[in-house]
């Protein structure tokens, strides 16, 4: 009597966990998608959630079933499986899992990955330089001349010139600098050159499925294509110190005219 209660409870535990898990997980998703390549990442994640969800449920139900059966048995069943059974079961399931995992990577993942990294940036992309520091995002636009002016760490002044812009450089005169605010025109790609001034940060736009570490001494670039207008949050995704949790920026996708208006107000207030 006691034994079957224990068995029932244990089996129930794993069955409940398995079923509860997939029910709970099925209701969770990422922030609404706002980029083109992000559709590929979402597809990758959906594939994984569905396949893994199925395997998860199967595994837990199998475990629950085996506990249920085993707890009620008085003598063992077949004592030793044949070597052939062991090999076949192992190989079949092992390979099956490999197919699911690698298949996902090769079929969905790699094409998205290579497309994202190898595609040449469109000529009309909005080019922006972002320099992460403790604890804000310095944003710079090249201005009308399309060139970024020279910067030097020696020229950095945290209150007046956090980027260390060399104002004697003609290319720097029309550079537009903001803090924690990025605006881009809808309908064009965005190309971001990432710097870090002090420690490693990470440029994370959850709605755009964009994440890239900003590493001091390196200048990684990312290119992506927004597919929605609106104001989206920018978060830091690499521990960078005390205010890592509130290194918040805004990424605003606006119309072409609104973008130009915004740029000119930024230039005017300089």
């Amino acid at each position: 009597m006691r034994r079957s209660l224990e068995t029932a409870l244990a089996a129930a535990l794993f069955a409940v966990v398995g079923i509860g898990g997939v029910v709970y997980g099925a209701r969770s998703w990422m922030p609404p998608l706002a980029s083109r390549h992000g559709a590929g990442i979402d597809a990758m994640l959906l594939y994984l959630l569905v396949t893994v969800g199925g395997l998860f449920l199967t595994g837990y139900l199998a475990l629950a079933y085996l506990i249920w059966r085993g707890g009620r048995r008085d003598r063992i069943g077949t004592r030793l499986a044949s070597h052939k059974t062991e090999v076949v079961l192992s190989v079949v399931l092992g390979l099956g899992m490999a197919v699911i995992a690698e298949g996902g990577v090769l079929g969905i993942g790699m094409p998205v990955w290579t497309e994202y990294f190898d595609a040449a940036p469109p000529a009309d992309a909005t080019v922006i330089e972002v320099t992460a520091q403790q604890f804000m995002w310095n944003v710079r636009y090249p201005g009308a001349d399309g060139r970024f002016g020279r910067t030097a760490p020696q020229l950095v002044d945290e209150t007046t010139n956090p980027l260390g812009l060399d104002r004697s450089d003609p290319a720097a005169t029309d550079d537009i600098v903001t803090i924690n605010e990025i605006a881009v025109p809808f309908g064009r790609a965005v190309r971001i050159r990432l710097h870090a001034k002090d420690v490693i940060h990470s440029f994370f736009l959850p709605h755009f499925r964009v994440k890239q570490d900003a590493v001091p001494g390196m200048t990684p670039e990312m290119v992506f294509f927004p597919t929605s207008t609106g104001s989206f949050e920018l978060a830091c995704a690499e521990l960078c110190g005390l205010a890592h949790y509130r290194m918040r920026g805004f990424f605003n996708v606006v119309s072409e005219t609104q973008f130009r208006a915004w740029l000119s107000t930024q230039a005017a207030t300089r």
């Binding site: 085993g70 004592r79 390979l95």
Partner: peptide, 26 residues
């Protein structure tokens, strides 16, 4: 990295399969 799923899956399955036909003492 994903090739590691193969031995780990086989191992996990072996543990589960060890319960087949068992006379369980919980």
């Amino acid at each position: 990295t994903l090739t590691i799923t193969v031995p780990m899956t086989i191992f996990g399955v072996n543990m589960l399969a060890s319960l087949w036909g068992a006379k369980l003492e919980l």
